[in-house]
Design a protein around this nucleic acid. Structure first.
Length: 829
DNA sequence: GGATAGCTGTTACC
DNA sequence: ACCGGTAACAGCTATCC
């Protein structure tokens, strides 16, 4: 006789955090980790009914349809572990690429075999088989409305030593396991602010940068009420947060023990997918420490791919670096995305400064410093996580994908997931992911014609107005209905015709397509939340607005991206073409008002205000907007007191994407100049920005010229400090793959020889030195920061300082080289 | 054998 | 491979006359 227990019924409020799935009796089940309203850790078990679609022509006759359905119901796939059958089918009227279709919904035993079943379906009436390639968790969230980080009411029964699922509850380290029976969505607005995740930040220090090669010297943890440094090293200082362990093994065991005790919702690191977690795994393996951090007793899981991601069952491991890289980097001032710079910019606090030494050479006090340094890294990582929490939360809610995924996905994946989760509203069946060959042929098509850039005339200008189109490309997509599903095979009545360079004339229907409609909605949501947080300070509204803004901005790139499900080159190319047309027409209209247009790039137009008042300019803007198509809108970016455009280095013509402005509050806006390029030395960058400021503030070049002369004098007298002449260039690929051996490649090679860490993405720092023999190539004069040697005066004069200033002074007809050599001659005489 | 066009590579703009 | 095209420019390198 089997003993069996009656499970207790319970109704809870639940917030899903982390999703996982498992098989039981050949079927798929979800394990969803989260918290209840009392803050208890819960694992929810839910079943999942996997299915995919077979799409048929909508005109197929009923009899034939029934026959196909019956045939499909006979299919099965056998493997060593299970048999997957077609469980049931249903015939539905759906949309595919915005066109009505007949579809058979095919439920299968196990989702992993959906593709295998789909492959067997091969009737001539079948147009397509779809949705077997959508990740299981994504599909589950869509079908069961179990959106991450949104409170749900769940009725279910508590599993207690249950026979069900092979006693799964006893292996899960949560407060209780609930088998879901009914899921009810709540009015989420009420409880939104209530959930505060338990966040713990961690960081390790090692004695070798190569993963697993060295020893982990210490691990720090920081969170609310948590402040720890675990170490196997010795130091006489007794500090409350330092825990000393006998060796690395015990330290790692203590790390696991602490995490289990803290029970964090989120474990956050900085570059921890690529460093901390793999290192911990490697050392734990070496010492045979059981790294069972997962709430199901599992070890961290490392996904394969270009970038590995480290996941822990039931705990959301967030590598903040990755989230910042995709979501924030474009709006940040930092030149690198290192923890120090990023933290300084976002939370106003950076890393602790210490001098790096071999651990064997550290004194007692230096060890203490090292522990503090390690703790500080966790502390600022924690603060960053707190600061970015609203953004992570909103991204996860809007995209409707788990936190783990949205913090690691690129913009195209985020857009795609947003689409997948919103297709339901359109009754749409999802398009498939392109296969390898398809991607290849898409890529082979090469580029299409893009944005318009106005050819500027070099000079100093006064009273400049900048107009720009709000979310221009998105507005174009929405206005003209440009997408894969609205592209027509041939011209139709009332359709839009766009003439493209390569593909000739293409046509789009006026019948609304889901992609432009979705995008229109994104733009509206962006507007809504922007005005909401402008009215009153609200971090969540701001984060929400920002998330929608990023989605809107990425939508155009998505349609042009070869890896996209809804890739449509014609739509992307047409977007660029129509945007170009709109900006050119607007330029013409402004010119007709007797205003002088001096610059334009993609979605912005700069012109001279002349005698017109600001009010008159605003009236002009209003008038221009009245004549605008669809949701296209031009806005006033700003008024500028002065601006300068320079020539290209190689010719007399004006350089595009390179100008500097000053507004009425003396705020500078510098674009494209060496000042904003991190691969130029600080000496040149600082001099350039100073002379731009002197010129723009007063509209006169005399002081600027004096400053240039003084700086050159200092350079020649070797008064420039080393830091100012360092050149930083990023290593973008493995050293061996470089065809062109440039200075930074040489510098990286030198670093490697010195056993310094060299990895992709790193900024290589070097300077150009004097050499004994005459050397032609710059790379032959490369030296690392700590190498002995004088800087090369000729190089820094001719390749850094002069190039940075000559085009600017040229605007005032000053030839700096002649001026310098002239003054030299004067001193000679 | 010196000039230079063209390529590789990085970083910017939008 | 992990969103698009446009553009400037440095430094190296193949090619030309």
């Amino acid at each position: 006789m089997r003993s069996y227990k009656v499970n207790m019924k319970k109704e809870i409020k639940f917030i899903p955090l982390d999703y996982d799935y498992f098989d039981y009796n050949s079927k798929n089940y979800l394990k969803i980790f989260g918290r209840d309203e009392d803050g208890k850790q819960v694992c929810l078990i839910d079943d999942f009914e996997p299915y995919f679609w077979v799409i048929l022509n909508k005109d197929i006759d009923e009899e034939r349809l029934e026959k196909i359905k019956k045939e499909i119901e006979k299919l099965e796939v056998n493997s060593d572990t299970r048999t997957t059958k077609v469980e049931k089918t249903s015939i539905e009227n759906k949309e595919f690429l915005s066109k009505p279709v007949k579809a058979i919904k095919i439920f299968v035993t196990n989702y992993k075999d959906a593709h295998g079943i789909a492959d067997q379906i091969d009737f001539p009436e079948v147009i397509a088989r779809r949705e077997y390639d959508i990740p299981l968790i994504t599909k589950y969230i869509i079908d069961n409305n179990m959106q991450p980080l949104v409170w749900k009411k769940i009725a279910g029964e508590i599993l207690n030593n249950s026979e069900e699922f092979g006693n799964i509850d006893s292996s899960l380290q949560v407060d209780y396991v609930l088998k879901a029976q009914k899921i009810i969505s709540l009015d989420k607005t009420k409880s939104d602010s209530e959930f505060k995740p338990r966040i713990v930040a961690y960081d390790i220090e090692t004695d070798d940068f190569e993963i697993g090669k060295g020893e982990i010297l210490m691990i720090s943890l920081y969170g609310e009420g948590i402040k720890k440094v675990l170490t196997s090293k010795k130091c006489s200082h007794k500090i409350d947060y330092i825990e000393y362990y006998k060796d690395e093994t015990e330290m790692l065991e203590a790390f696991v023990k602490h995490i289990k005790k803290i029970k964090p919702d989120i474990l956050v690191g900085y570059f921890s997918d690529g460093f901390d977690m793999p290192y911990i795994r490697a050392r734990a393996e070496k010492h045979k420490v059981d790294l069972d951090l997962g709430l199901d007793g599992s070890k961290p899981f490392f996904s394969r791919g270009k970038l590995t991601s480290a996941s822990i069952a039931g705990i959301v491991h967030v590598d903040l670096y990755r989230f910042i890289e995709t979501v924030f980097s474009q709006y940040m001032q930092s030149e690198t995305l290192g923890l120090d710079e990023v933290a300084k910019e976002l939370i106003g606090e950076g890393k602790k400064n210490i001098e790096w030494k071999k651990p064997s050479k550290l004194s007692d006090d230096e060890w203490k410093n090292f522990f503090e340094y390690n703790l500080q890294d966790s502390l600022i990582t924690y603060k960053l996580a707190e600061k970015l929490w609203p953004d992570m939360l909103e991204f996860s809610r809007i995209i409707q994908e788990p936190l783990f995924d949205i913090t690691r996905q690129g913009m195209s994946q985020l857009v795609e997931n947003y689409i997948l989760h919103n297709l339901k509203k359109f009754n749409e069946i999802a398009e498939k992911r392109p296969l390898h060959d398809e991607i290849e042929s898409r890529r082979e098509l090469g580029k299409y014609e893009g944005a318009y850039v106005f050819q500027p005339i070099p000079g100093l200008y006064e009273d400049i107005v900048f107009f720009d189109f709000t979310s221009m490309y998105s507005s174009v997509i929405v206005t003209y209905n440009l997408s894969k599903s609205t592209l027509l095979e041939k011209k139709e009545k009332d359709s839009l015709e766009v003439n493209l360079e390569k593909e000739g004339k293409v046509h789009f229907t006026k019948e609304p397509g889901f992609f432009p409609e979705m995008l229109g909605n994104i733009i509206e949501m962006r507007k809504k939340y922007k005005s909401e947080y402008k009215k009153k300070e609200d971090n969540l509204a701001k984060a929400r607005s920002n998330a929608y803004k990023l989605l809107a901005n990425a939508a155009y790139g998505y349609q042009g991206f070869f890896g996209a499900r809804y890739y449509c080159r014609q739509a992307a190319a047409s977007t660029a073409t129509l945007a170009k047309k709109a900006i050119l027409e607007t330029i013409e209209k402004i010119k007709k008002l007797d205003l002088e247009v001096i610059y334009s790039d993609t979605d912005s137009i700069a012109f001279l205000r002349k005698e017109k008042t600001k009010k008159q300019i605003e009236d002009i803007l209003e008038k221009l907007n009245k004549g605008m198509q669809g949701i296209m809108e031009l806005e006033l970016e700003d008024f500028y007191k002065r601006g300068i455009w320079v020539t290209k280095r190689s010719s007399e013509s004006g350089a595009k994407k390179k100008y500097a402005l000053i507004d009425e509050k003396n705020r500078m806006k510098i674009r494209g100049f060496e000042t904003v390029r991190r691969d130029w030395c600080d000496l040149a960058r600082e001099l350039q920005s100073q002379i731009l400021e002197l010129i723009l503030k007063e509209g006169n070049e005399k002081k600027a010229l004096e400053l240039v002369k003084r700086t050159i004098k200092d350079l020649k007298e070797r008064k420039i400090e080393r830091e100012k002449i360092m050149i930083r260039t990023q290593l973008k690929k493995p050293l061996s793959e470089y065809k062109a051996i440039t200075p930074h490649v040489i510098a990286a090679q030198k670093m490697k020889e010195k056993n310094l860490p060299v990895h992709i993405g790193m900024l290589i720092k070097y300077f150009i030195s004097e050499t004994r023999e005459k050397k032609e190539l710059v790379r032959e004069k490369v030296k690392l920061e700590d190498e002995k040697g004088e800087y090369n005066i000729e190089y820094y004069l001719n390749n850094q300082l002069l190039p940075a200033v000559e085009n600017i002074l040229q605007v005032f007809s000053i030839n700096i080289e002649e001026t310098i050599s002239g003054s030299k001659q004067k001193t000679l005489f």
